[in-house]
Every structure is written in structure tokens, then in C-alpha cells.
Design a protein around this nucleic acid. Structure first.
Lengths: 253, 253
DNA sequence: CGAGGGTTTGAAGTGCATCAAATAGTGTGG
DNA sequence: CCACACTATTTGATGCACTTCAAACCCTCG
């Protein structure tokens, strides 16, 4: 806990991770301090449920490493995956606007480190800190747009196109010309669920995508000669033409 | 414009309509006045586009009568319907959190009266009025949840179940025991689009729903002996068991 | 009464799901 | 380093749900 040169205290580490979160970006040191006062660092294993849909919410979570799946589940166990989140993303914070009930479940899909914070601290801060309120508004609005896009994709793209679109979003980070290699960030089974299809369908659809666009797949590595190769195929069935100009905003939120 | 007894000025009429909007509910008279200063009432015909996806946004709209469809559209004209809104709902206001770009298109599906307001006035007010900011946060969060639910339905309910769920949400307003009559609020073709299916599929799926649940349909009128009849069938494939306890919240937002 | 949209019905095709089984890949302990 | 167990992924065969195209029907409104 000491704050010696060349070595960070827990609080500093937590503060640093918080500053990556879009809606904490404009918080000053005091605000960060108030928000992180009751923070707790956790190491959890794959399969750990952070919280369950419709449970009473007391804390929200900042992901430091690993991947977290958010989903909704029917009585018979069928899951609808909402999103897959990684480091720098926050889950469960919107419960403060939903009478302290989580509106979905969140589960680790691999061992991960997360930091949890009391929702009450966030609520207090949002109510008294207009800058934070504005940034949360922006973040929520962007999430809305992202969900609209997901709905659109689910509605009008077929399986191979959805996969192509998914890969394009991975590539976007390394925005380069010419040949490209990307690594699939998690299990193909999980990507399939994320895209609303069965693993078998994913496998076959990826095969079709290879045939149609000439993309190569070896294990979890995907190679393509150029972005156009894919964007012609996938972005034809999308309302935002490539390079999806709102991708950057999406990734910030 | 005069303010005589038994007769309302335009400004009063507008103010009254604004107070129905969830996120204006806590605004005091001064705030309402500032927000409505540059309001304009419009009469538009069916087919009128209020705004188009990715256009630069300058105004947002409060619906006074009629129905408005929000949607996204690919180059080849395929549409994905996001929502169908009626009186008391606001569209286009989230552009202030998206660099003044609309993130979908909005079109009247029948003749309607709407009031438009400058986004800049809303932006100013939100930035300086914490109560409004909080209410907008709540509204956005609820819309998020609603979208999650839509995604879930799209992903795991089949066509007849989605229709059953849609009807249940209509019924919910008149929460009574025993036999029930509801009127479909708009075209079956439009309901189909709203539920992500073709008109033909809608027709056939409704037929199946009749056979499975004993519900009756005559034109746009749907009759059922009891709510259970439907909820058993549809809500089995939904993460929130009936009566979807968050429906009330959903309708407020 | 007739035109035009909304709605239903029929027939055929497509895409995805499902079930079953083979194969590849990964981590384990010997 | 290998054999084993276990999981992830692929492949095959089949069925169902939804779409598509085409045509008929129905209803409303001029």
C-alpha cells in the first residue's frame, strides 16, 4: 500500500484502470478517489458469475483482464448473448437506473481480474457530478447505437456476413493497408453465440466465407489479402458503409 | 396565442405534451419554457421522413399523434425496423450524444402531428440541469434494457411466440382478468417488420398461434379467454417470466 | 363498381438448427 | 516424450422455420 518511487499503490493502480473507462475519463482526482474508496480487487476463475439477471444489485465491475460474457437466459437454459467484454469495460453499472436490479447476467469466460465498486458510490457521484453525468449519457447513447447495429445485423445479415463483419471489427484496430493477420479473441463457440448462431453453423459459415472472399483460416488465426476483400462481402448488407465510420466511437464506449 | 380561460395557448399545449415525456417529467416551468422556446408544431402525412440515418441533426421530435417508425436501411433498401413509436414518445434526441448525427431514420407510418425542438436547446439544458440529466440517464438505460429484450426475443423466440409476446404487451395496459379484446395498433405488415419477419410469415404464424392457444382474430381485433392462455406459450421462451415485471418501466421510457 | 392496398394462401427453395459422429487440439500424468 | 482424457471444432445427414415468388382474396374508399 505504500507509495514509493517506481512502484504503485493499489489505489493508484485502480485509479489508472478507471481512467481508461470512457465515462470516468473526465473525472478529477477527487472524484476518482470518492468512486474508488470502496473498490475491491478480485481474481476469479472461468465460469464465475459476477451477477445474475434480476438479482438485487449492489456492486458494478471493471474488467482488468480476461473476457466477460453478458447474457439473458430462459427457464430452459437457452442463452441469448448480449456482449463479450474485455479489459477496460464496465458491467453492471446501469443497475443504478433500473431500481438496483441487474438487467442481464454476467459470467467470466476465462480466468480474469476484476475490480468491483459499490453502486451507491457511483449513484452519489453521478447525481452530484455533472461532468460524469454527461459522460455516462454519452456512453449509454453509444451503447444504444451499438445495440441498434447488433439488431440490424441479426435481422438482415446472414451467418457468413455476420462473421465477416465481426472480423472486420477486429481488424479495425490495426488499420493498415494490404495483407492482414488477426487472431480470434476467444473460442469459436463463443463467437458463434455472440453472433447468434450455433457452433456448427459458425464452422460452415466460416468455410463459406473462405470460399467467397478468399480469406484463410488456420486455427484461431485469420489472414486476408486486403480489407476490401471482406468489406465488399459483409458491408453490403449493413446500413453503415465501410469503413464503418462509427466503429471508433463504438470502441470507445 | 392568448391565454384566456377555458382555452390554451400554443405554448401551454406544447408544455402539456412535454410533461408526458418521462425525461421531462421533473422539469420545472422555467426549464420547459427554455426547452420549448423554439418549438414548432408540424402536420405531416404518412410517408414523411422526419430524418435520415447519418444526416446532420438539428432538431428532435415529440410525437403528438400517429405512429412513427424508426429503422436502419442498407444500400439495397432492406430495412431493419428498430421501433414503432406513438404519442408521448420522443425521437432523435440522442443525436446530441452522437456528434449531432442521427443513428437511424424516422418515418411517419400514418398522418401525424409532431412538435420539433432544436437539439441545441436540449443540449444546453441537459448540461446545466442535473435533474434532467438524471432523468435522461434513466430513460437511456431503460431503452438499453428494452433493446436487450428485443435482441433476446429475436434470438430465441420463434415467429408465433414473438407475436404472442407482442399481443401480451398490448394487453398489459388493460390489466384485467378473464376474456380480453385488443385492437392491433397498426398494419399487420408493419407489426411483422417490427417483429423481424415477413408479412406472409406473420400471417401464417398468427394462424399457428390461434391453433396453439385458442386465440381468436377478426381483422385487427384479437380476443383471448385469458392472459395465461398466451403467456404460457410465449413467455416460456423469454428470460423474464410473465407478467414481465419490467413492462411497466419499459412503457414509461 | 372498380382500383389499390392490405392480407392470406400455395408451392418451392434456402438457411440454419439439430443430432450424431469423426477429427483435431490441448493439457495431464506416467 | 507418449498415451490418455477431455474439449473444441469439423463434417455429414436430416428436418424445420422462415423466405420468396406468385396468385388469389378481401376490404375500403373514391
Amino acid at each position: 500500500m505504500k507509495d514509493l518511487a517506481g512502484y504503485q499503490s493499489d489505489h493508484e493502480i485502480i485509479a489508472d484502470k478507471m481512467r481508461v473507462v470512457p465515462f470516468f475519463r473526465n473525472c478529477d482526482d477527487d472524484a476518482i478517489k470518492r468512486l474508488s474508496e470502496n473498490a475491491v480487487k478480485h481474481q476469479y476463475n472461468k465460469g464465475k458469475l459476477l451477477f445474475v439477471h434480476e438479482d438485487t444489485a449492489s456492486r458494478y465491475y471493471l474488467i482488468c483482464s480476461g473476457w466477460v460474457k453478458t447474457f439473458r437466459e430462459t427457464l430452459d437454459g437457452t442463452q441469448a448473448v448480449m456482449d463479450i467484454l474485455n479489459a477496460g469495460h464496465v458491467v453492471g453499472e446501469t443497475a443504478i437506473f433500473n431500481d438496483d436490479l441487474y438487467s442481464f447476467s454476467a459470467e467470466l469466460v476465462e480466468n480474469a481480474e476484476v475490480i468491483s465498486f459499490p453502486l451507491s458510490d457511483l449513484q452519489n457521484e453521478v447525481e452530484t457530478n455533472p461532468k460524469l453525468a454527461m459522460d455516462m449519457l454519452k456512453a449509454l447513447a453509444q451503447r444504444n447505437i451499438k445495440q441498434d447495429r447488433e439488431m440490424e445485423h441479426l435481422a438482415i445479415q446472414n451467418a457468413p456476413q455476420r462473421i465477416g463483419c465481426f472480423i472486420l471489427r477486429l481488424v479495425y484496430n490495426q488499420e493498415q493497408e494490404g495483407p492482414i493477420n488477426v487472431h480470434l479473441p476467444y473460442d469459436k463457440t463463443l463467437i458463434a453465440a455472440r453472433l447468434g448462431m450455433q457452433p456448427e453453423t459458425f464452422s460452415r459459415a466460416l468455410g463459406k466465407l473462405k470460399k467467397e472472399t478468399g480469406l484463410e483460416v488456420k486455427g484461431a488465426t485469420v489472414s486476408l489479402d486486403s480489407i476490401q476483400q471482406l468489406s465488399c462481402y459483409s458491408c453490403a448488407m449493413c446500413s453503415s458503409e465501410f469503413p464503418c465510420h462509427d466503429l471508433k466511437k463504438m470502441q470507445e464506449s
